[in-house]
Design a protein around this nucleic acid. Structure first.
Lengths: 179, 179
DNA sequence: GTCTATAGGGGGATAGAC
DNA sequence: GTCTATCCCCCTATAGAC
């Protein structure tokens, strides 16, 4: 599942195969089919694990007790880490780019994951604005969608234009949120 | 090339085949190989055409003579049209999502296209701020990267979460740019 | 320029031995 | 649980007839 997650972020659902994972693990692909009968099952398990992990993190006191600004910095740092790790993109971006050619259950998992990320970001933005430490116009939900879509796109952009472009986007977001 | 462009936006480079185009045109795939020996040649030609088209549009008096705000609206409307057209995403987003598994020449075309889009947006933002009709902090280049990456991500997001989310992001951008 | 035919490879998935 | 072996499909690409 670690390898599958990594390959999803690197090559996308249609870009990796059981053979990639098998050779890396030193087993045969039939062994993987024993645990995950279909490729869809493997990908769905990866997404479900990611969703559980994000829920755990955000409910965890280590993140939950941070200030709104620190929470945002933590959020951005997740994506910076993706970028630093051989130019990976977020699972959401990878899966939605090929949304029209992935299995139905995987589409549903993708949607659920995306909604959960947005919901957390929206609440965090509202919390920060209510506390007077960050600033933006309009609905927290819309600003959350803007920021998440931008980070998602910026990870892809950085593949063609370099890591600096990704950092520039994050810095611009922080500038835009200044009180 | 029209079909190839459409399929690139719909399924990505690895998600479409000569057979898709051939059956749609009522010919055999060998006929396509006559015009575009390799799949890479076809995709590169599509990108080159798109670059030429964008250059033509932005140098054309119909766009060139618009006000900065109208130029931005025109820019956003391109992506709204993609969204309305069966949930297509932009070529940049599609190709960069699978950047690590596309041919080298196609990577280069993608990078060039992305730089040209960014350059135009950057100049337009600067023009608008200098004229006092739009407002943002920091460098025009960084704001341009933020907006383009966001629209790119928002088209993907809309596939899972619906068209309204895309419109919300565009409206939020306009709100963020208010003087 | 398009056709038929086919080479040659990869990928998803299963059967059955161990 | 993992192995070998294999099936079947789709894909890119080419050869040679028309």
């Amino acid at each position: 599942m670690n390898l599958a997650e990594s390959l999803l972020q690197d090559k996308g659902f249609n870009g990796f195969s059981y053979a990639h994972i098998a050779s890396e693990l030193g087993v045969k692909n039939a062994a993987i089919h024993y645990h995950f009968p279909a490729k869809e099952d493997l990908a769905c398990a990866v997404i479900q694990r990611y969703r559980d992990r994000f829920k755990l993190w955000t409910n965890n006191s280590r993140v939950k007790d941070l200030s709104p600004e620190e929470k945002l910095n933590w959020f951005f740092s997740i994506y910076s880490d993706f970028r630093a790790d051989n130019g990976k993109v977020c699972l959401v971006g990878s899966l939605e780019a090929e949304y029209n050619s992935i299995p139905e259950q995987l589409q549903k998992q993708t949607e659920a994951m995306h909604r959960e990320l947005l919901a957390w970001l929206q609440v965090t933005l509202k919390e920060g604005r209510d506390a007077g430490v960050i600033n933006f116009n309009g609905e927290p939900a819309n600003k959350a969608a803007l920021i998440l879509s931008s980070v998602q796109g910026a990870l892809q952009m950085a593949r063609a234009l370099g890591t600096k472009k990704f950092r520039d986007v994050v810095e611009q977001h922080k500038l835009d949120l200044v009180v």
